[in-house]
Computed example of a mutant assay.
Amino acid sequence: MRFALLALTALLLTACTGGQVIDDSFSSRSQSSRVQYIVVHYTSTDLAHSLALLTQGEVSSHYLIGDSPATVYRLVDENRRAWHAGDSAWQGRTWLNASTIGIELVNQGYEQGPSGAVWQPYSEAQIEALITLLKDLVKRHELPIDSIIGHSDIAPQRKVDPGPLFPWQRLAEAGLIRWPDAAAVATRRAVFEQALPDALWFQQQLAHIGFSLAFSGEFDEPTRNVLAAFQMKYRPARYDGMADAETAALLATLNAE
């Protein structure tokens, strides 16, 4: 019995690097994970270059998911900061490297063709691996729904990844994000087709979703970039950044839930 108590005491008392003894026998109930969001990216290059860039360069991410096979690489411990978000903002929080987990998917992104951008699709194995990883992260870090966002959400003025071929609706079907109800969208679209809201309304609705943008009252370039990021996620068939009845209906439906 005495030996067991001594062993327990030894486990609870740990030494710092400098030799100071730290007592770990008490733990505060007022704590939570440092992680507030999970940010999804694509790498814009192949696996070999992605690994080199994310392990030897100035940028990093917590996880990298290959394409063939869909191997999940852990590159940075979740308790440490990875340099993946850059100048970023979401729901009033800024510079999100400190409060996010970054996940990169090996994907070339897009090439410019005669008719515009040609995007590389994601493999089914990649998406399955991603969803499995996301479910584990959400559970362990006790994240609420809608905590998974794209790089284009947090930096719409300079980033477009994970792009219009990323299957956000699959994440919704897995219970990881919300998705606007189709019937509600159709009902609201009919109303907005009669009278489209002004620019300020769109800016306020986008800000309520989480985007960072100025309330200029104009459909200026920054606003169009944010609209395009929103459309790329919820209406990837058309992401021209132009305000229309369907985009208004999608925004209103999401914000009403």
Rank of each mutant, 00 (worst) to 15 (best):
D146L: 05
D23L: 04
R238L: 13
H151W: 03
L51T: 10
A4D: 09
G109M: 08
G92L: 10
G210C: 04
L251H: 06
V21S: 08
V76E: 01
R29M: 12
L53M: 13
L96K: 02
S99I: 15
Q203I: 06
D146I: 10
G109R: 02
I38W: 00
F192M: 00
V185G: 00
V39L: 02
A48G: 08
G150I: 11
H151M: 10
R235H: 15
G66R: 10
Q231K: 09
V160G: 10
H208P: 00
V138G: 05
L165N: 07
P236F: 13
A190K: 09
Y110L: 07
P114C: 13
I103K: 00
V160M: 04
E173R: 11
L12W: 08
T247L: 06
A117V: 11
P164G: 13
R140G: 07
R170V: 04
L251W: 07
P222T: 15
Q36K: 10
G19N: 02
Q108F: 13
A172M: 04
E246H: 14
P156K: 03
H41T: 06
D240S: 12
V118L: 06
T43W: 01
P222Y: 14
G241N: 11
L227H: 05
I177L: 03
A199T: 03
A256Y: 11
A7V: 12
L134Y: 03
Y63S: 06
Q204D: 11
W179S: 06
A214R: 11
L5C: 04
K135T: 14
G18S: 04
A195L: 09
R2T: 14
A184I: 11
S28M: 12
G241A: 12
G163Q: 01
L143A: 08
A245H: 11
T100P: 00
H84C: 14
L54C: 08
Q126E: 04
D198E: 09
V35W: 04
S68H: 15
V118D: 07
R93C: 09
P162R: 06
W179C: 03
